[in-house]
């Protein structure tokens, strides 16, 4: 088995607010192996983006990591001094965001933003060399190097997202956290972007955490999948296993709710109920109020992870 790039152990992330504490991430443990793409799926507010942000300790106050470990090649990010963390960001771990239209500073040219990143991490690098490296990167992304002198507003959304990823990869990090990178793009640009990501992944030997709510994208892009619900992990396994044979009732419901173009089902299967309140989560399994297979134990005890057909599922059905 390949070595782990990232190991998350029993991570808890909380946001204390005036009405109580939002438990955005509860007891999440997962590993990212070298070279794989881990798809993190779930509905809005399930904690998937919060998990992504906590890896770089980018949580906005009052959000904070309450307990747990995040090990990057064996170094614990949670307890790392600020200086070390700043070196890690951008150099070892990069992150790209949902909205490419607002992720680049509008007042600086693309070249300036490449330059700033390079100069921050490689002190004393010559401007000419830095710009050459940026130009090479743009070529990799299929963008003309002349564009370095242009401003973000002169480019399309798809181009800006490619530039974001280019700035993210300019220092050769081995881990990329992509937080809904295609959500703001239309389907054609999305497909191009996913192809590019695949290409870059091989070229740069990247390990990727791909956060999305789009099941189609995650199926296409990921080796393994983790499904999150209410801040907790519901199911994790290889993409094939999880899609072919979902075990957790939430995953089953999620897959059933994807519209089918062949119209095998006359109506969309919508899941009843609403996502849980993370300030006062239901006791036991967070999914039990919406679960069609709910049992007594589900209302009392939080399910552990059980092995079911080759992948892990946090559900009492598989005890």
């Amino acid at each position: 088995m390949k070595e782990n790039v990232l190991e998350i152990k029993n991570l808890h992330v909380q946001f204390p607010i005036h009405i109580g504490t939002v438990r955005a991430v509860e007891d999440v443990s997962l590993n990212l192996r070298k070279g794989e793409v881990m798809g993190l799926v779930g509905e809005s507010g399930c904690g998937k983006s919060t998990l992504g942000f906590s890896i770089l300790r980018l949580l906005r106050p009052p959000g904070h990591i309450a307990s747990g470990e995040i090990n990057y090649h064996g170094r614990d990010i949670c307890s790392m001094p600020q200086k070390e963390l700043l070196e890690l960001r951008g150099r070892n771990i990069s992150m790209i965001f949902q909205d490419p239209l607002t992720s680049l500073d509008p007042l600086y040219t693309i070249g300036d933003q490449f330059l700033e990143t390079l100069r921050t991490h490689e002190k004393g690098i010559k401007k000419k060399i830095a710009l050459e490296r940026a130009a090479d990167m743009l070529k990799n992304l299929g963008i003309s190097p002349n564009r370095l002198h242009e401003y973000p507003h002169q480019m399309s959304g798809g181009m800006r997202q490619r530039i974001m990823i280019g700035i993210g990869l300019i220092l050769n990090p081995d881990l990329l956290i992509a937080d809904e990178p295609t959500t703001a793009l239309d389907v054609i640009v999305e497909a191009q972007f996913l192809d590019l990501l695949n290409e870059l992944r091989e070229k740069f030997e990247l390990t990727i955490m791909f956060i999305t709510h789009n099941l189609g994208v995650v199926a296409q892009a990921s080796d393994r999948i983790t499904v999150m619900y209410g801040g907790r992990m519901a199911e994790t396994g290889t993409a094939e296993d999880v899609f072919a044979d979902p075990k957790h009732p939430y995953t089953q419901g999620l897959l059933a709710s994807v519209p089918n173009i062949k119209l095998e089902q006359p109506e969309l299967q919508a899941m009843p109920g609403a996502p849980p309140d993370l300030v006062n989560p239901p006791p036991g399994c967070v999914f039990h109020p919406r679960c069609p297979h709910v049992m007594d134990v589900c209302k009392q005890e939080v399910p552990k992870s059980f092995q079911a057909n080759g992948h892990m599922t946090a559900c009492w059905l598989y005890k």
Partner: peptide, 25 residues
């Protein structure tokens, strides 16, 4: 805004994030 977060994610130090990107905007 997102570009502030993105700048932080690239490891840019606090002072330039706040004053070079933040204040100029």
């Amino acid at each position: 805004s997102d570009y502030i977060l993105a700048a932080e994610a690239r490891g840019i130090r606090h002072f330039p994030v706040v004053y070079k990107h933040g204040l100029l905007n």
